[in-house]
């Protein structure tokens, strides 16, 4: 089990790296999909079934699709590949590295409870959503999505 965990771990990391470094926009989107998928699987490993599948469903199935569509729509010409060059890679890279190191510094000092005490049933999410006080928030969330939906249509329509 652990072996698979680590494989997924590494794949997620590498594809994340590829997302931001590849020159082709299309490939970048696809790599993003892989990264999101990997994250979703990691959620599964953490014991969050519901969240994991929601992640895969929404992100990979919805968002990445959306990205692809938009890329297609915002293309200058069908023939040329979309170039997604990078500006000032070194400075920005340095910067990102700096952030990374700083955060790692912070992260080192965080105390994690040893694993033994963590085995519990974490699949409480559906009951949490539909049978508790969080129902209202969900309804509101759906309204939000509706708004976003309408807003996007408004912004991008041809008149």
């Amino acid at each position: 089990m652990k072996f698979i965990f680590w494989i997924i771990f590494v794949i997620t990391g590498i594809s994340g790296l590829m997302t931001v470094t590849t020159k082709d926009l299309f490939r970048s989107a696809l790599y993003l999909g892989v990264t999101l998928l990997g994250t979703g699987l990691l959620y599964l490993f953490l014991g969050f079934d519901f969240v994991g599948w929601v992640q895969v469903l929404v992100y990979v199935g919805g968002v990445v699709l959306l990205i692809i569509f938009t890329i297609m729509l915002a293309r200058e010409s069908v023939m040329k590949p979309i170039v997604n060059t990078v500006r000032n890679p070194f400075i920005n890279g340095l910067f990102a590295l700096l952030i990374f190191l700083l955060l790692m510094l912070v992260a080192k000092n965080i105390y994690f409870v040893p694993e033994e005490e963590l085995e519990k049933d974490y699949n409480f999410l559906p009951s949490l959503i539909f049978q508790s006080k969080y129902v209202l928030s969900f309804e509101v969330l759906s309204v939000l999505l509706l708004i976003a939906f309408i807003g996007a249509i408004l912004i991008a329509r041809r008149d």
Binding site: N92, F95, I99, L102, L103, L105, V106
Partner: peptide, 16 residues
């Protein structure tokens, strides 16, 4: 964005 990040780095360093 760069400047924002820059600022936050400074803040983090200070807090640390």
């Amino acid at each position: 964005l760069f400047y924002i990040v820059l600022g936050s780095i400074v803040l983090i360093v200070i807090i640390l």
